[in-house]
Amino acid sequence: MSENTVLKIVKGDPTPEELAALIAVVAARAAVPAAEPESGRASNWATYWRNARTPFHPGPGQWRASAHP
């Protein structure tokens, strides 16, 4: 195996057509630029908990207050 080997078939015996299809897919995937990371803004799912409900404040008589928002 040479030093420039990028792809190695380790099992099976692909036809030339199958091998060409595999190389085309790998080359197309390599040509796609990497996705840029999103801005530092948190997604709506990450901030959902803030709007879901107010936190509990345990203490005497708080079970009565929990029924009235």
Rank of each mutant, 00 (worst) to 15 (best):
60 P>W: 02
32 V>R: 11
52 A>Q: 07
23 I>H: 08
12 G>L: 01
34 A>V: 14
10 V>R: 12
54 T>P: 03
47 T>E: 00
54 T>Y: 10
57 H>V: 12
52 A>I: 07
30 A>Q: 05
7 L>S: 04
3 E>G: 13
2 S>E: 15
55 P>T: 04
12 G>C: 05
1 M>S: 15
23 I>V: 09
27 A>G: 08
53 R>V: 01
18 E>G: 05
7 L>E: 04
62 Q>W: 04
41 R>A: 15
30 A>T: 04
3 E>W: 13
1 M>G: 14
46 A>P: 10
2 S>A: 15
31 A>H: 01
7 L>T: 02
3 E>D: 15
57 H>C: 00
50 R>L: 15
47 T>I: 14
53 R>Q: 13
33 P>Y: 02
31 A>W: 04
1 M>T: 13
39 S>K: 05
25 V>H: 06
49 W>Y: 13
23 I>R: 06
40 G>L: 08
2 S>Y: 14
47 T>Q: 13
45 W>Y: 12
47 T>C: 09
7 L>W: 04
45 W>G: 09
64 R>H: 05
35 A>M: 02
57 H>Y: 10
6 V>Q: 14
69 P>M: 02
32 V>I: 15
62 Q>M: 09
35 A>L: 11
52 A>E: 12
67 A>T: 08
45 W>M: 11
66 S>G: 07
36 E>R: 12
12 G>W: 02
45 W>N: 00
66 S>Y: 10
28 A>T: 06
48 Y>R: 14
16 P>E: 10
27 A>R: 11
56 F>P: 07
35 A>P: 09
69 P>K: 08
18 E>H: 06
17 E>I: 00
41 R>T: 13
7 L>R: 01
65 A>L: 12
1 M>C: 14
63 W>P: 00
28 A>E: 07
24 A>K: 04
16 P>N: 01
49 W>I: 06
41 R>L: 14
59 G>Y: 09
25 V>W: 00
2 S>Q: 15
61 G>W: 01
52 A>N: 06
53 R>P: 03
46 A>T: 07
